[in-house]
């Protein structure tokens, strides 16, 4: 009896092992993916409905910019106390009244691509390395200066302001929103 059972058990075992070897099928794979996508849409819509509302109301980008500006100001308070920020509308008023000099802290190629009309390029790296003769470009140490960069996470406008203050300039503001907000507002830009 035992002799008959042993090969039968082997056959059953082999058959089960073969059954566990899955055959590749694109249909099954895509079906498996669709399950995950279904639950993604379900959970994403429920948990992030506020974000989706912001998206469809058109308030998402301003909220992101506001949040990033708050982070930049918080960073400035910790690392560069004494540096002041200026909002977009006040900066535009000073621009219109020709009372401020706008300084672009980005690299030269970035500045060449587009910049605030009339702004001077002062790449922070070149300034730190002493490649720029600051006194020639900005002879008046009391001039009202507004630095800017890319906005968002970009903090080189802030670093430029700090660097200028160490060179004795004492009337510096940072346009935290950067040139993207200036451009978005439809204010004058230069694209050579």
């Amino acid at each position: 009896m035992k002799d008959i059972q042993a090969p039968t058990a082997n056959l059953i075992s082999k058959s089960l092992t073969n059954q566990t070897r899955k055959v590749f099928s694109w249909d099954q794979t895509i079906f498996d993916s669709l399950w995950i996508i279904f639950f993604t849409i379900l959970f994403g819509s429920v948990f992030n409905y506020l974000l989706l509302l912001d998206t469809f109301n058109g308030t998402l980008i301003p909220e992101i910019q506001e949040r990033q500006l708050a982070e930049l100001k918080s960073k400035a308070e910790q690392l560069y106390p004494g540096i002041s920020f200026i909002d977009l509308i006040s900066a535009k008023k000073l621009y219109d009244d020709k009372m401020a000099i706008f300084l672009d802290a980005r690299t030269s190629p970035e500045y060449q691509r587009e910049h605030i009309s009339g702004a001077i390029n002062l790449p922070i790296r070149a300034l730190v390395l002493g490649e720029i003769e600051l006194e020639k470009i900005l002879p008046d140490k009391g001039a009202l200066l507004i630095t800017y960069c890319d906005g968002g996470e970009c903090d080189i406008g802030l670093e430029l302001a700090k660097e200028l203050s160490t060179h004795g300039y004492n009337n510096i503001f940072v346009l935290g929103e950067g040139y993207p907000s200036w451009e978005h507002a439809g204010y004058p830009m230069e694209r050579p």
């Binding site: 639950f39 993604t40 849409i41 959970f43 994403g44 819509s45 948990f47 992030n48 974000l51 989706l52 912001d54 998206t55 469809f56 058109g58 998402l60 980008i61 992101i64 949040r67 990033q68 968002g152 996470e153 993207p180």
Partner: peptide, 23 residues
């Protein structure tokens, strides 16, 4: 905000990506 920093996508794509990709 991280997606916005790429400066490649319009607002609807940013919002939908941020809502669904993590899931």
């Amino acid at each position: 905000a991280s997606i916005y920093n790429y400066k490649l996508f319009p607002a609807p794509i940013i919002g939908l990506t941020a809502a669904f990709i993590p899931w």
